[in-house]
Write a protein that binds this DNA or RNA. Structure first.
Lengths: 333, 333
DNA sequence: TTGAAAGCGCTACCAG
DNA sequence: CTGGTAGCGCTTTCAA
């Protein structure tokens, strides 16, 4: 089923069918009606590949994330998609599961699709890809990783700041034995949090004893990390988690060990995903404005007429500390 | 950057470049090497639209879900994607947010993309779409909604069975005031659970007093539904939720009202998403085998050589009851 | 083993 | 306002 058949059925030329479909206002309403009718009767669906190829442009935005399962990424996607839909774009997502090889193939795939813009919200990164993207001249937005370029905007979160707020707060509550639960210690954005943690903790006085442990991102990872941590004999009075997602697993394991939160152990998350309000107890965390990030991403990729394109920009976001019920004064010995 | 430029640079014809890329073994290794080199130097990325258009086939599978945020859908997607990747396909997802209009446009989009197969895992459905899909002759798998046809396979879950197990169990524990918390009462699969609930409850003896309440899918919806329920003055000893996702919101609101789970109120979920193990308390629920569903979907869409295509099939899945800690004996008055 | 050329289905330009 | 037609970038015969 193609344009030619529709044209024949409607008794007009292919060009007219094309116009009736893409720019209805410039076709006489009578003609348009015949076309619409033929389209419906034939259940015609334009071949989008042909359309994109012929038109040269694509109304598709690509997005690549590290872990769709983590609501953090999903929230950014949802906002980006909402904005895109409103502007008559669509978004296609790819998931890397934190695997650099999958990031490479996803990026290639997106370039191959000639997306109108690409949002890369991942933790892993290969500098060669930056070049490849620069050369492709596709508008790109990176979150956390990457380098600003002519066609590349960079969104960064001041993780250090967020972590420091957490550590200071815990320290002010008298915590002197802390642990950090993370994932993928070798990847930029997550290791940044871990490093910031160590740095902040070292500066405390009275001094704080601390330890770090790493597992996969997710509930299960949080649980296993905690299990491992407690098995070492270390008894933290506070556990700082790299994100809320893992923190929920941490809560679970602590409870399994008969530890109460926050009376026996304080726990903090990061990101402020919806679930952090619904966990038990609700998590003290750091808010990363995912909606705002999604918004910014879209604006960078598809600048509206009132928001001019600002190339090679770097945007820094300062996170906000949110106190809930998973933290309290350190337990007295 | 296109084939012609690569061909020129490599000093061969376009046809040869194409072959070197798609079917390397039939090109002399020396020639192939020159092509590979040219491709790399030029950072050439084949235009996938042109490729699909010329080739006539697409190695893309489409998937449409109602609510990406609900891990239930995500789990099916993950399995489908894993299988697809292994077979060198890719998957693109679309999200409808339970809006029939978005289902329509998503399906049109997928047909327009000429996907190799389409998995529709939604709750809403318009019978007209079935025809449209039948005519498109694209292999389709429906979950929960739809009708088996020549090119359409149907996966169904015996919700009634699952709900009955829950109600019987609760009743055997002495619960005589139950509530059902659902979402989208007008949509097939969710209303089926609600209807099954009413039906099961009515058959109980001693009789059970019951009520149903509906809100949006999600934590917040579960919370609001519960708030509304309690505001009526009804004091259920057990709340049966349409899914785990909402159940977590229910737990939270009950706790807010000073009610203990399961001592004061028993709560059950549905689906057995990962979170149900990590909530506090872990949820008694019904397991829907999402991995299996994802698997089946892929097999139906892209039948391997050892698994012949079985058209017009209807597959029924019987869910399994999972008891955890969110349920217990009814509170004595 | 390689090259030439005919489409794939559509858009967009140029005439009328 | 409508029709004719030249590509868009690639795959795939058919020949060599």
């Amino acid at each position: 089923m193609n344009l030619a058949e529709v044209a024949k059925r409607a008794g007009v030329s292919m060009a007219t069918v094309s116009r009736a479909l893409n720019n209805p206002s410039i076709v006489k309403s009578h003609t348009r009606a015949r076309v619409i009718k033929a389209v419906a009767e034939l259940k015609y669906h334009p071949n989008l590949h042909a359309r994109t190829l012929a038109g040269g442009r694509s109304r598709t935005i690509g997005m690549i994330v590290s872990n769709m399962e983590n609501p953090f990424f999903l929230d950014i996607f949802r906002q980006l998609e909402a904005d895109a839909l409103a502007a008559n774009f669509e978004v296609i997502v790819a998931n890397t599961d934190y695997q650099p090889a999958r990031l490479v193939s996803s990026i290639r795939l997106m370039i191959g699709r000639r997306v109108a813009g690409l949002a890369v919200v991942v933790s892993e990164m290969d500098p060669y890809l930056i070049d490849e993207l620069t050369d492709s001249s596709i508008p790109v937005v990176f979150h956390d990783v990457g380098t600003a370029r002519e066609n590349i905007t960079n969104i960064r979160v001041n993780y250090r700041n967020g972590i420091e707020k957490i550590v200071r707060y815990l320290h002010s509550l008298g915590h002197e034995r802390m642990a950090f639960v993370g994932h993928h210690a070798s990847l930029g954005p997550t290791s940044e949090r871990q490093t910031s943690f160590s740095r902040a903790v070292v500066q405390c006085s009275p001094p704080v004893e601390f330890r770090s442990v790493t597992h996969a991102d997710g509930f299960e990872g949080g649980r296993l990390a905690t299990r491992e941590l407690l098995a070492t004999g270390f008894e933290p009075t506070a556990i700082v988690c790299v994100n809320d997602f893992m923190a929920v697993g941490v809560l679970r394991e602590l409870r399994e060990h008969g530890l109460r939160i926050p009376q026996d152990v304080a726990v903090t998350g990061f990101d402020n995903i919806k679930l952090s309000e619904f966990s038990s107890p609700p998590l003290t965390t750091v808010h990363i404005p995912r909606q705002q990030i999604g918004h910014i991403a879209f604006e960078c990729l598809v600048p509206g007429r009132n928001s001019p394109r600002i190339p090679g920009r770097e945007i820094v976001i300062d996170p906000e500390f949110v106190v809930r019920e998973s933290t309290g004064p350190a337990k007295k010995k």
